[in-house]
Design a protein around this nucleic acid. Structure first.
Length: 136
DNA sequence: CCTGAGCGA
């Protein structure tokens, strides 16, 4: 059952994945998004599968806190981009616990605020007091 | 218990 679903996913996503690997084989971040996991796959199993490719900084299966079960995807990050590259080449579209997993670059979790906020220092009450002093 | 596109308990 699980194998059939894995193959269906593999066929569905084969276009975008294999073409993106062929034409864009360079990662910009050592963070990887792993999807297609078995719901039984844990951090331990993920670490076992991804540790041969480099120094793991993080290998975390995302757990749904309502059910306490895996959501079926995970985040894996390495010390360097090169290691993440090897892991992606070595683990993408491979079997893990009976499911075909997909390894892609991860998006940044928090949208970064534009760096214009740093240029203007947040002066609060003192600015108002100076202005009042100018009046008197 | 079961589930199958996706981007963080």
């Amino acid at each position: 059952m699980a194998f059939v679903s894995g193959f269906q996913r593999l066929l569905r996503h084969s276009h975008s994945h294999f073409t993106s690997i062929r034409f864009n084989s360079t990662l910009t971040s050592p963070k990887l998004f792993v999807s297609g996991l078995s719901r039984l796959t844990t951090d331990e199993k993920l670490t076992e599968a991804f540790s041969p490719f480099g120094q793991l900084m993080e290998a975390k299966v995302i757990i749904d806190r309502a059910s306490g079960r895996s959501k079926g995807f995970a985040f894996v990050s390495y010390a360097t981009v090169e290691e993440a590259e090897k892991a992606r080449e070595g683990m993408n579209a491979k079997f893990l616990d009976g499911w075909v997993i997909f390894v892609d670059p991860a998006k940044p979790r928090e949208p970064r605020p534009p760096p214009q906020a740093e240029s203007q220092a947040p002066q609060t009450g003192f600015t108002v007091n100076k202005t009042v002093g100018w009046c008197g």
